[in-house]
Design a protein around this nucleic acid. Structure first.
Lengths: 229, 229
DNA sequence: ATAATAAATGTAATAAATACATTTATGAAT
DNA sequence: ATTCATAAATGTATTTATTACATTTATTAT
């Protein structure tokens, strides 16, 4: 906290949001093409400025909604980026957030085109400013977070198959996982509700659908349970 | 990034630093007593404002140095705190950093009193603004970080005993650890250099001193080694 | 010489992670 | 109706990591 009186060096505060999605196969990022200078035509994260009357979390939600139409999605602060020349126009500190969205259920919100496009995280275009660093940090946070908290489900439809869940973890962590060991691990946590319906899209036999049991998870949390994959 | 042109809502950007130390027994925090309004007389983290020409990391280093005399210490950004009313005087977003310092080796720098005082993290006084939240987040980050990166050594003297290292981890994680299992675990990583001298302060027999081998750690990192306690 | 103190050390039991192959249900093709 | 193709479902043995736990050793002070 301040040593002397308050000074007058005020600075532009921006927010940038890394939006993750999962398309049943690959981890995706939602980007927009910048249609004004500087860096016009380059791809960018969703960003905007902090207003005087809103908290950082509120601003992040507002900006995400205004640029994509999305709301009620999982969002969390990543960290602040503050290199002096990160924005060539003016000194700007940006607070990065990341969001996890379920592409299928939110697709209609996105459909009325905001000019946003999904990219495979493995094949990103050039990004403006320090957005590449933000993405890198977001991926590593996502790896950590999904391995200690059940937030990966935010990227899946409400009902999903074991294989989809496995593919999600494989995409996030960038490595193959043994099928039987994965199922064993998931079942041992006892957090999913097996549905009676099957998903017939991927095979003739069909595979059972599951649902994450949030209530049960919260109950277990109180008993000292810790999620871990 | 920015949808429309740059706007003029600039905001005060502060930095606050959570300074951790370890006194051979307990995890400590360095605080200063605020001697001006608002909240005069209350304890506070070390804080200051971001200047136009410096990065966040640079500002954190400068502020830490100006308030404590400390330099060349481990420091890392925690995250940004931006509730609208967190500072009653003026809208201020604060970027929190945490630092790990070796109390014994840096004590002389601190001696010319800046009015700072070490507190046991378990017995903190009331803190101004949202500093309590910052501390809480810092502790949880410290727990994570020390369990996956060898940064705990920053809190110890260059030469330390196994018991000191153990007590450090016990203090950080808030639980007792079995002596033999701890030594086994540490030795299995093969990252410490056993010195020939012993520390005779704690017992008649004396206990061997060890030193963290940074070079070896870096070599191992390249081979895919991951630190873990 | 004895007492007191903390340091150093190993093993057995349990739990967790890994490696690995076959059978089953179904729809489509003949 | 039989066969074929496809992905789903499932279990066990091995290895590795974690945990629990008690005695001996070196030294100083008396």
């Amino acid at each position: 906290m301040k040593i002397t009186e308050y000074n007058e060096t005020k600075i532009q505060v921006a927010l940038d949001c890394i939006i993750f999605g999962f398309d049943q196969e690959k981890l995706k990022l939602l980007l927009i093409k910048r249609d004004f200078e500087p860096e016009k035509g380059k791809w960018s994260l969703m960003g905007g400025f902090l207003k005087a009357h809103e908290s950082l979390d509120e601003a992040a939600v507002r900006i995400l909604h205004s640029l994509t139409g999305l709301s009620h999605v999982y969002m969390e602060q990543l960290s602040a980026f503050g290199e002096v020349d990160r924005d060539p126009v003016e000194r700007t500190v940006s607070i990065a957030y990341y969001a996890l969205i379920n592409i299928q259920e939110h697709n209609h919100e996105l459909s009325n085109d905001f000019g946003a496009k999904w990219f495979d995280v493995e094949e990103l275009p050039n990004l403006i400013f320090d957005h590449k660093d933000m993405v890198q940090e977001a991926i590593s946070r996502l790896r950590y977070k999904t391995s200690v908290k059940p937030v990966g489900f935010e990227l899946l439809p409400e009902n999903f198959t074991m294989r989809q869940l496995q593919k999600l973890y494989e995409a996030i962590h960038g490595r193959k996982i043994d099928k039987r060991n994965f199922v064993k691990k998931i079942n041992s946590m006892d957090l999913l509700i097996k549905q009676s319906e099957k998903d017939k899209n991927s095979s003739k036999k069909g595979s059972f659908l599951y649902k994450f049991d949030k209530t049960k998870y919260n109950r277990k949390l109180e008993d000292g349970f810790t999620f871990g994959i």
